[in-house]
């Protein structure tokens, strides 16, 4: 690992100040479970790390008076998976946290860090390779080994979004609170991520000197939500696909559905066709299958990952049934 300086701010405002610099020479450190490996591999070479762990109050889980879940950015995945209010009222989020990484990673990895992890692509993570995400001319996965990559591909970079929390948080319509030089702003999860086509310089809308301080999740009362993942290995493996389905039902009929897929597109994939296919219908094996097919109709798999289309369709069908509490979910 190259030498760097480690700054310890006392407040979020001071952290922003310390992060301000040229390009991405200064970077934030939270749990360190992604960035340290990227620095050892010299994919990232910041000259300064701003250690957010010294910031007060960001490791708390609270339910506010409006019934919203407030997660400090430094809450660990282990805290999230064990928190009683989360398990009760936002269970899909607790389940997703419990599936991420390993016990060791969950004991240090944070909510903010999980949301801001860098693309999981072997071309991106090999320092000598100059892929499109690192400013090169072409996405090396598009023409190379892309067996785990996006099936809903944008141009530019096909590394899929692997954040375990982004998928359920998008389905719960959460927002992140961002501290920057001009104060704080809120960004909806659905607007947080950027594909390479949308922004060639960053994978989120966060500026280099902005940090996530909090995640705010609206009350989920009345919603039926399920989160499911498929992975090759039972532990310590990134999912081949994940799905969160949130259903607002009335007497067995779906009033409104939100369907979000992870690990299949460069950003959390909100499937409007699947939601539309469920609207106004009861959830049955047949309507779940139709919705899953509607979602996957948009898929444009790459040379090596056609298998993910059927796999994701089956996963989504099962997740819809699980959300509705019907049959084989």
């Amino acid at each position: 690992m190259n030498a760097f300086e480690l700054a310890r701010p006392k407040s979020a405002a001071e952290a922003v100040q310390l992060l301000t610099g040229e390009g991405r020479q200064h970077m934030a450190l939270a749990g360190g479970q992604d960035i340290l490996a990227l620095m050892k591999d010299e994919v990232l070479q910041p000259v300064r790390l701003v250690n957010l762990k010294s910031l007060p109050g960001l490791n708390r889980i609270e339910v506010d008076r409006q019934g919203r879940l407030n997660l400090g950015a430094l809450v660990t995945l282990a805290q999230l998976e064990a928190a009683e209010p989360v398990r009760k009222a936002w269970s899909a989020l607790a389940e997703a946290a419990a599936e991420a990484g390993t016990p060791q990673i969950r004991n240090l990895g944070t909510v903010g860090g999980n949301l801001c992890q860098k693309p999981r692509c072997w071309y991106y993570r090999a320092a000598p390779l100059h892929c499109a995400r690192k400013g090169g001319d072409a996405c090396l996965a598009t023409t190379g080994d892309n067996r785990y990559h996006s099936i809903f591909a944008f141009g530019g970079c096909v590394a899929p979004s692997y954040s375990a929390l982004a998928t359920p948080l998008t389905a719960y319509q959460a927002a992140v609170e961002v501290q920057g030089p001009g104060g704080t702003r809120q960004v909806k999860l659905a607007d947080l991520y950027r594909s390479l086509e949308q922004d060639p310089t960053a994978d989120t809308v966060l500026k280099p000197n902005e940090i996530i301080t909090r995640v705010v999740v609206p009350p989920a009362r009345g919603l039926r939500v399920a989160h499911r993942e498929v992975r090759q290995m039972a532990s310590h493996d990134w999912p081949l696909a994940m799905a969160t389905v949130a259903l607002d039902t009335n007497g067995g009929t779906v009033r409104q559905a939100r369907v979000v897929l992870g690990a299949v597109a460069p950003i959390p994939w909100i499937s409007a066709p699947a939601a539309a296919a469920l609207k106004g219908k009861p959830v049955t094996g047949e309507t779940a299958r139709q919705a899953a097919e509607a979602a996957l109709k948009e898929a444009t798999p790459l040379s090596e990952n056609g298998y993910k289309v059927r796999l994701t369709a089956n996963l989504l069908r099962r997740t819809i049934l699980a959300a509705a509490g019907v049959g084989e979910g």
Binding site: G32, A78, P103, Q104, I105, N107, L108
Partner: peptide, 10 residues
């Protein structure tokens, strides 16, 4: 008291 990877902590 909690298991962590010592390689992944400064």
């Amino acid at each position: 008291g909690k298991p962590v990877y010592a390689c992944s902590v400064l």
